[in-house]
């Protein structure tokens, strides 16, 4: 029981009349890589976004490391620091360089010293093969590079779980490989991951 990281209990979610999530139950253990597949509009992304409360659930409960995510009494920002998220559209901050994108939250949210944050960030960037792009603005990076920076941004918070929302759907086919490689390495390294995708090729990895 101790290694359960995310618990989803009888979760229902409505968008108006639309019943998107119906009685979802699931448990994710530490180190697991869970892939959520299904046709578009089936609520995969919605489920993922409920885990860090970017969406509110209508009924049921979601626990992260024993803390109820959907309890307004709990500080959601503390939970979000432990839950990394990677978006389909990357959502890098366009007014900041790759490095600044990565170190912003560790410094401002976690309170890490700047030199320390830089060191961590550069090491992570090196890991995804983008150390030379540290001072580039997102607009100067390809989609695949942006997504790898976005993954690094999430990792820099040293999360306990990584949520991937269609991480390769917005990428050109030749860019997909680099991003998948990074994700594969993460999984091998023991990171708990939840990946929403429509691309079955991801599954094979």
């Amino acid at each position: 029981m101790t290694n359960i990281i995310i618990e989803i209990k009888d979760v229902n979610k409505y968008f108006g009349q639309l019943h998107v999530l119906k009685d979802i139950n699931n448990v994710i253990e530490t180190g697991e890589v869970v892939v959520v597949i299904g046709p578009s509009g089936s609520g995969k992304s919605t489920l993922l976004r409920c885990i860090n409360r970017l969406e509110e659930i209508t009924s049921g409960d979601i626990y992260f490391e024993g803390n109820k995510v959907n309890d307004p009494e709990n500080d959601i920002n503390l939970i979000r620091q432990k839950v990394g998220m990677v978006f389909q559209q990357f959502n890098l901050f366009p007014h900041k360089t790759a490095l600044e994108n990565i170190i912003l939250a560790p410094i401002k949210v976690k309170g890490i010293r700047e030199e320390e944050a830089r060191k961590i960030a550069l090491k992570l960037l090196e890991g995804v093969g983008l150390k030379d792009k540290a001072d580039s603005y997102p607009a100067k990076l390809s989609g695949g590079q942006q997504q790898r920076v976005a993954i690094t941004r999430a990792l820099a918070m040293q999360p306990d779980v990584m949520l991937f929302d269609e991480p390769t759907s917005a990428l050109d086919p030749e860019m997909v490989g680099d991003v998948l490689e990074v994700m594969k390495e993460l999984a091998t390294g023991g990171m708990t991951m939840m990946v929403v995708t429509m691309k079955l090729v991801l599954l094979k990895r």
């Binding site: 970017l54 979000r80 939250a105």
Partner: peptide, 24 residues
């Protein structure tokens, strides 16, 4: 997406406004 990205790394409302939304 900018709001969500800021939220997803744990920023509170004022941090999000100050560092992400208002500068843009």
């Amino acid at each position: 997406g900018q709001w969500e990205a800021a939220r997803s790394v744990g920023m509170n409302y004022s941090q999000m406004m100050r560092y992400i939304i208002l500068p843009q």
